[in-house]
């Protein structure tokens, strides 16, 4: 991409200042973003790859990996369905209270993760509103898988809808109206017209939901009770190992999660480039 300043001398900053600003920005990124990432990898690997693999293969760690995958495998599809439904209603339709519904979707982002976990403890916990009823029927939600899944769904609820809504709105409803006029049903319109049009954004929304679901700490920590090998996800296991001064163990699990973050970022860049290419061709 050409810069305006290349052909417009009035927009050119004195080169000394330009390089000073670049240096400041890069130094900040290096110190605040690269250094933590490098520290995680270094602390995990500086005693050798065998030690790292040994830490990962530890039974409690494997259990935490399995649980993290399980929670994400439930929470992500639920949020995919909810996100598409919310985006469809908000982006393709005009109705009273749309702004309020949109704001409500954003609520989990602005609420503290601890509060997000606490609400479920107060609802389903032993002292919660439904606690006695659940106890009578021997149903465990808090300190068990259902609570962790619920908290994860709460925290990651906004991401699919938030990535879909802007692009679905920009695309308008012409194609959906055409499909409906040609006799397509709701499902056909959604699966053949709307979702393929917003495909890359949808994929990005799912990606982001997954990254946050696997990495959620505060909300899940409040509802899980962090029982080793049982209700311990990877981020919670990082905390346990860190508190036990098992730095290699803690950073080995942290490195796996950091890898997840890096893969997410790489896929994001790739998706954005595809989206730009498509927008360039299309319009």
């Amino acid at each position: 991409m050409r810069l305006a300043a290349d052909t417009r001398p009035a927009l050119r900053d004195p080169s000394g200042i330009a390089w000073l600003l670049i240096a400041a920005a890069l130094a900040w990124i290096l110190l605040l973003l690269v250094l933590p990432l490098a520290t995680v990898l270094w602390e995990a690997l500086h005693k050798g790859l065998p030690r790292f693999l040994e830490a990962v293969k530890e039974p409690d760690t494997l259990a935490s990996i399995r649980l993290t995958l399980l929670v994400a495998a439930i929470a992500v599809p639920v949020n995919l369905v909810l996100g598409v439904a919310m985006a469809w209603a908000i982006a393709k339709h005009e109705f009273r209270g749309r702004a309020m519904l949109t704001a409500l979707i954003d609520l989990p982002i602005s609420v503290s993760p601890v509060v997000s976990g606490l609400v479920f403890v107060l609802l389903f916990g032993a002292q919660g509103w439904l606690g006695p009823w659940l106890q009578e029927r021997d149903i465990k939600i808090i300190f068990a898988l259902p609570g962790m899944v619920l908290a994860t769904i709460f925290v990651t609820l906004p991401y699919v809808a938030r990535t879909l809504i802007p692009i679905m709105r920009r695309q308008g409803v012409d194609e959906e109206e055409a499909a409906a006029t040609l006799g397509a049903g709701a499902w056909t319109t959604l699966a053949r017209v709307s979702l393929p049009n917003a495909g890359l954004a949808l994929l990005y929304g799912v990606l982001l939901t997954n990254a946050r679901a696997m990495g959620e700490f505060g909300a899940v920590s409040v509802v899980s009770g962090s029982i080793r090998g049982e209700t311990n996800t990877m981020p919670l296991h990082v905390e346990i190992l860190h508190n036990e001064y098992d730095e290699v163990g803690a950073f080995s699990v942290a490195a796996l999660l950091a890898l997840l973050a890096v893969v997410t970022l790489v896929l994001k860049v790739w998706l954005e480039r595809r989206m730009q290419a498509r927008a360039g061709v299309g319009g």
Partner: peptide, 23 residues
């Protein structure tokens, strides 16, 4: 650099926590 900006969104907070504490 542009891609790295989103790292705090993607990196689990507990990972950021132990890394920053160590640094």
């Amino acid at each position: 650099a542009d891609a790295l900006i989103d790292l705090p969104f993607a990196l689990p907070t507990a990972v950021a926590g132990v890394a920053l504490a160590t640094i």
